[in-house]
């Protein structure tokens, strides 16, 4: 198996783990972690895409930019988790299901 195939396998593995995490967990912190795993899969894909198209620099600089952007989203998610814990007293997403229909 070539290096690129291994990387593709890694991307799919990370995406699968992230999606699985999103589906099974009800804890807000773990939801944020699952989202982070998903983004790490995309990062790996970007770096690999740069390598595959012969533009290693481009792929890596995209990846660094994504790390910044995605940290901001993670911070917002964690801040929400803190506020939910303060206000509702639990991190369980089930406690947050009053809006329906």
């Amino acid at each position: 198996m070539s290096a690129l195939n291994w990387v593709t396998l890694g991307v799919l593995g990370l995406l699968g783990a992230g999606l699985y995490g999103l589906l099974i967990t009800r804890n807000l912190i773990k939801v944020v972690i699952a989202l982070q795993i998903l983004v790490k899969g995309a990062l790996l894909a970007l770096v690999a895409a740069g390598q595959a198209s012969g533009q290693i620099n481009l792929g890596q600089s995209l990846a660094v930019t994504v790390i910044v952007a995605d940290t901001v989203v993670a911070v917002v998610g964690l801040a929400l988790a803190v506020q939910v814990k303060r206000l509702v007293g639990t991190l369980d997403v089930k406690a947050l299901s009053n809006l329906r229909g």
Binding site: L15, G18, L22, L28, V31, L35, L38, V39, G41, A42, L43, A45, L46, A48, A49, G50, A52, S53, Q55, L58, G59, L62, V66, D70, V73, V76, G77, L80, Q83, V84, L87, V88, V93, L96, S97, N98, L99
Partner: peptide
């Protein structure tokens, strides 16, 4: 808070999909 949690999680998952698309286009 509930509305924001739903919004953040769905948006973040959506933006990962876009990133994967970008990686495919770049490759």
């Amino acid at each position: 808070l509930e509305a924001a949690v739903k919004y953040v999680v769905q948006s973040a998952a959506g933006s990962v999909m876009v990133l994967l698309g970008i990686a495919l286009v770049l490759s």
